[in-house]
């Protein structure tokens, strides 16, 4: 190959990758600074709305394949479960299972209907239809969106406590950031004195960290942390968030090291309530 042609090709290649990198950084910057937020969130909404029927259709067709793949990953657990199921198979009938599944769903919905701490805040009951789409965030997708009255920033609760907050919404669905996500922060209060603290996520399936607890603060395992509801808080007051599982302190530490387990079982979410509550400005 002539040297000049090779050099020209190398220069063109450098131009292409350079332009693409600059374009990417420009897009990230515009998103980060909020200058193109309307355009980007509009594009995201349109993409989700266009994709939702396709996803529902393909999901219905491929669910057995997805279940098979999921089962293949958890093969060891399944073998143990199969052995147990074989012993019970005589007693189980298809109708019974179907009825049981319906009862479980009903029970989950009834639990949502009787949440004492929701008070008179209007709610939208939604079903979790997808888990986190990114390996780098702890989120779930719900089947209710802006046409059902869901908006960005609304708190989401499950049967036992706070689940997370809506961070993205389109007409037929929304994305909820779980309280275990590393970018999640929830102002809480606990104890008889109403000590204030901040619950921060540490990743999916892990305990959450309770920060800003001064050394010497009386702490007890199993103590329930509830949302603080302070002015400009992102959540209404008195929603149970987590229970303290461990705490420790070193002499020179400026705060106690406290871990807590979320009260809502975030691994098996089925139905949740979106609270139509917005933070006071």
């Amino acid at each position: 190959m002539p040297r000049r042609t090779r050099r020209a090709r190398r220069a063109r290649r450098g131009t292409t990758i350079g332009l693409l990198v600059v374009a990417s950084i420009a897009i990230i910057t515009l998103d980060y600074r909020g200058q193109a937020h309307g355009v980007i969130s509009g594009a995201k909404r349109a993409a989700h709305d266009a994709f939702a029927p396709v996803q529902r259709g393909v999901d219905a067709l491929t669910r057995p394949v997805g279940s098979f793949l999921s089962g293949a990953v958890h093969g060891g657990d399944l073998e143990a479960q199969n052995a147990k199921l074989r012993r019970e198979i005589g007693a189980l009938r298809r109708q019974t299972l179907s009825t049981q599944a319906t009862r479980n769903s009903l029970r989950a919905l009834e639990r949502l209907d009787q949440l004492p701490w929701v008070g008179d805040i209007p709610t939208v009951t939604a079903q979790v239809n997808a888990l986190n789409s990114s390996d780098f965030a702890a989120t779930v997708q719900l089947d209710k969106g802006s046409k059902n009255g869901v908006a960005i920033g609304m708190p989401v609760v499950g049967g036992a406590g706070l689940v997370g907050q809506v961070i993205d919404v389109w007409s037929s669905g929304c994305t909820v950031r779980l309280i275990t996500d590393i970018n999640s922060s929830v102002g809480v209060r606990f104890g008889s004195g109403g000590t204030l603290a901040l619950v921060q996520g540490s990743g999916l399936g892990r305990t959450v960290a309770v920060n800003l607890v001064s050394p010497g603060t009386p702490l007890h395992k199993g103590e329930v942390l509830t949302t603080s509801g302070l002015q400009q808080a992102q959540f209404p007051p008195e929603i149970p968030v987590a229970t303290i599982t461990s705490f420790s302190s070193t002499p020179s530490a400026t705060q106690e090291t406290v871990s807590a387990r979320p009260l809502a079982n975030l691994a098996v979410l089925q139905y949740v309530d979106v609270l139509q509550w917005e933070s006071a400005p």
Partner: peptide
Amino acid sequence: LFLPTPFGLSAL
């Protein structure tokens, strides 16, 4: 368009 991470990061 479908991820909660910063927009443009996957493109970069």
